[in-house]
């Protein structure tokens, strides 16, 4: 029977114009249309959004947490990518 179960969808909501869609949770739905309906009913009951994205959870690929060291740490040492790395004389403004 479990093969008849509705797939899981991840829900992303834009809370207002000018902001990114943000992951808010998941739900079950048989297809994209009803996933959007359900997301509207489940996740925007208190005017939380003006736009919804849904994506079937199956289609999300995640980085492997056990690779986190090699994936993310190398950028920690590239401090020269941040403006605070550089000294500018006191008199300079707006740089």
């Amino acid at each position: 029977m479990s093969n008849k179960e509705w797939p899981l969808w991840e829900v992303f909501i834009r809370s207002k114009q000018g902001l990114n869609h943000k992951h808010v949770g998941s739900l079950r739905a048989p297809d994209a249309t009803l996933a959007l309906d359900n997301a509207r009913d489940v996740y925007t009951r208190r005017s939380e959004g003006i736009s919804i994205w849904v994506v079937e959870s199956n289609y999300i690929h995640a980085s492997d947490p056990s690779d986190a060291d090699s994936f993310f740490e190398p950028s920690d040492t590239k401090v020269y990518r941040h403006p605070t790395f550089y000294d500018v004389p006191d008199g300079i403004k707006h740089m």
């Binding site: 079950r28 739905a29 009913d41």
Partner: peptide
């Protein structure tokens, strides 16, 4: 029939 639809009908 399923939680999601329960919520929809209540709306």
């Amino acid at each position: 029939p399923i939680l999601e639809e329960d919520i929809a009908m209540t709306n």
